[in-house]
Amino acid sequence: MKEIFIVEFPSNLGLKEPQAGKEPGVKDLPDWLWKHSFHKIINPKDTIRLDAPKYSNHKDSETNILNIDSLVTYAREQAYLLNNLLTQHKLPLIIGGDCSILLGAAIALKQKGNYGLFYLDGHTDFMDISLSETGGVGGMIASIVAGKGHEKLTNILNLSPYIQEENVWCVGNREYDDEYENEIRNAAAVYVSLEELRKQGIKACAKNFLLQVESKKLDGFWLHIDVDVLNDHIMPCVDSRTPDGLSYAEFNELLSFLLESKKLSGLEITILDPDLDPDGKYTKDFIANFTTVFNAALNV
């Protein structure tokens, strides 16, 4: 069994300000989970932290993207850290942060070999900057790691694409809009909306993904978890709320299939904003569900 390392990437670089002069609160998620005993329940071999560069709400004039230079700097530092863990056959459990933290992980994976990505999110995050109203990388990171977008982000260390487009699975989207969905429908990536996930069944979706990882002889896969994939009633403390979403029963079932796979190389948790859950009610429920499934799957 791989040793588990909690890795804290407290970044909000991929999001816009929720209101003028206020930074997104997701950067406080590692400390927030610590406060609510997440680390104690997981009981990792060690906890490693890499603080993010300073946040700015100004868009880059060339790319129209927020914090692009800081994101590149941070991603390179993240990749170096994660590369070391992967080389030692450790299992990184990353606490973000917003979804842009995937960039560092994707670079590290490309440096190690050929990997798949299971992108579990209430949105596809697979769109071009032209569709982004915010300029936040968090909303387009799945397409960026697949090589689509400005080369400042897609070709760091000349490694584009970090993950082959056809090995990216975007699962759980419920932002049902043709212009938005067509970005991924017209891509080689696999798109399983929330509606489609329920139609084909959670077990079938997970098994199909894991079968592809095996049949393509991939070196492993990365699991991205944006908590906004959960139903809005049980996880409202996110930056982009949308009706519906997975119940904990559905989420736990899907999670257990993926976590039990020997091909799992690492995973990350993103977007839960402590500012939006002041009494910790939703955080406690999430921790109880996630840690129970995680510890059972990895025989902790």
Rank of each mutant, 00 (worst) to 15 (best):
T291F: 00
A206S: 14
F221K: 06
F286N: 10
G147W: 00
I95S: 08
F257P: 10
N252Y: 01
Q212S: 15
L66I: 07
K262D: 15
L93F: 05
I48M: 13
C205E: 05
L81M: 11
L71Q: 07
G21I: 00
L33F: 08
D277N: 03
D128C: 13
L267D: 06
N252F: 05
K22A: 11
N252C: 14
A142R: 06
E151I: 10
A288Y: 01
G104V: 00
F294S: 09
D239Y: 03
K281C: 13
A189W: 00
H233T: 15
L194P: 12
F290C: 02
L81Y: 03
T134P: 07
L15G: 10
L254S: 05
G139P: 11
F126C: 09
M127E: 10
P18R: 00
G220H: 04
P161L: 03
Q164Y: 06
S143W: 01
N158C: 12
T134Y: 00
N208M: 07
N173Q: 05
G135N: 04
D219Y: 05
E175W: 10
I156F: 04
W32I: 04
L255Q: 02
L264Q: 02
S11T: 04
E179K: 15
N231C: 11
P274C: 03
I269W: 03
L197H: 08
N231R: 01
V293M: 06
T124M: 01
E151S: 15
S37E: 14
A296N: 15
T63Y: 02
P10G: 09
L157H: 13
P274Y: 00
K284D: 14
A206E: 06
E8I: 02
G97H: 01
E179V: 15
N67Q: 05
P236H: 00
A20F: 02
K27W: 04
S56F: 00
N57E: 05
Q164A: 15
G220A: 06
P10A: 04
M1A: 14
G245V: 03
P278E: 02
N12G: 09
V171I: 12
L91S: 08
D279M: 01
I269Q: 05
K148T: 12
G172P: 10
P92H: 04
Q212L: 12
S247Y: 00
L29V: 08
K207R: 10
Y191H: 13
D31G: 15
G113I: 06
L159K: 09
L255P: 06
L246G: 10
H150P: 14
E250G: 12
N295E: 08
N114W: 02
Q164P: 11
E3H: 10
